[in-house]
Nucleic acid binder design. Structure first.
Length: 290
DNA sequence: AGCCAGGTTTGGC
DNA sequence: GCCAAACATGGC
């Protein structure tokens, strides 16, 4: 068993409740998924996190996946110019931004378009169960994310039967693009602008989904996905009331800098859960008195 | 019944 | 470049 002593990450919040990954499952207080072709179990201990099964490579991979290298304690100081940032960060101790596989983030967030969290999770799990390799751990069946070629070979009607709806052809086209040489693994080495521009070539990927892939799957911490909630919160809490979401994204990245995306997760979660108040109509707000 | 959900695509100016 | 409509599905 591998131990990550002193790890402050809140597993349930980060893996299940923060809407950045959708394929983790919880059994008896532990969290299970297939990572890099092998099933993993994570659970909280008195001082840190434990993982099984364990080997040196896996521990190293998990350390990165859970973003344990980042100094989350420094975030409040880093965003001290924005009182609402302190408020949001303080309310969500242990929320980390995962370093996921870019393909997995890409698939999950294509499915996220104009969709709700419960259904995104259901679709991702269905996709894994239908096309991913099956594993078993602690007598629980676990399914890996299907590789691009597995998805590319699926009939569109079958994807629709799983509930993908109009996103089925997007997913198919993107799977084929990835199979025929799209540089998914090089996005992490490109600068943000180039990586963002490159992702827009994929079917079903617009500005927002591209930013999710960059933030959750490519280590681009400055990527700042602007969805309905973030659009509202940027208007209400930061006074950013630009017309389009891309403009809001640009303003936010200027204001918040290299870790904009990390803060985005805290803000997004507070807005979505109502922990901090936002107006439903974007731009209508009187602001927050903090 | 109608609106909403971590939007994108398409087609018209 | 900006704008509106269409797009599947399920929960409330």
């Amino acid at each position: 068993m591998a131990r990550f002593a002193g790890a402050r990450v809140d597993l349930r919040l980060t893996l299940m409740d923060s809407a950045q990954a959708f394929h983790w499952r919880e059994f008896d207080g532990a969290f299970y998924a297939v990572l890099r072709g092998a099933p993993v179990k994570l659970w909280a201990e008195a001082d840190g996190v434990a993982a099984a099964p364990s080997d040196a490579d896996r521990a190293q991979a998990l350390n990165h996946y859970l973003d344990l290298e980042r100094d989350y304690g420094a975030l409040v100081e880093q965003f001290s110019a924005f009182p609402v940032a302190r408020e949001a960060i303080g309310r969500l101790p242990g929320l980390h931004v995962l370093n996921q596989d870019p393909w997995e983030a890409l698939v999950a967030f294509i499915l996220s378009a104009n969709n709700n969290l419960a259904r995104i999770r259901q679709l991702v799990l269905s996709l894994c169960e239908a096309y991913g390799d099956r594993y078993e751990l602690d007598s629980h069946a676990l399914y890996a994310f299907p590789a691009p070629d597995r998805l590319a070979a699926a009939p569109e009607a079958d994807l629709r039967a799983l509930g993908m709806g109009y996103r089925a052809p997007f997913l198919l086209r993107t799977a084929r693009q990835v199979c025929s040489g799209f540089p998914l693994d090089e996005l992490c080495r490109m600068d943000y602008e180039e990586a963002h521009r490159t992702l827009l070539q994929l079917s079903g990927v617009g500005d927002k989904v591209a930013d999710c892939v960059l933030l959750f799957g490519c280590g681009h911490a400055s990527a700042f996905p602007v969805d309905v909630w973030v659009e509202r919160l940027m208007a209400d809490w930061f006074g950013v009331r630009e017309k389009g979401r891309l403009k809001v994204q640009r303003r936010a990245r200027e204001m918040l800098g290299g870790a904009a995306g990390i803060l985005q997760q805290y803000l997004f979660h507070c807005a979505r859960t109502g922990a901090l108040p936002v107006n439903r109509k974007a731009g209508g707000g009187a602001g927050l008195g903090v």
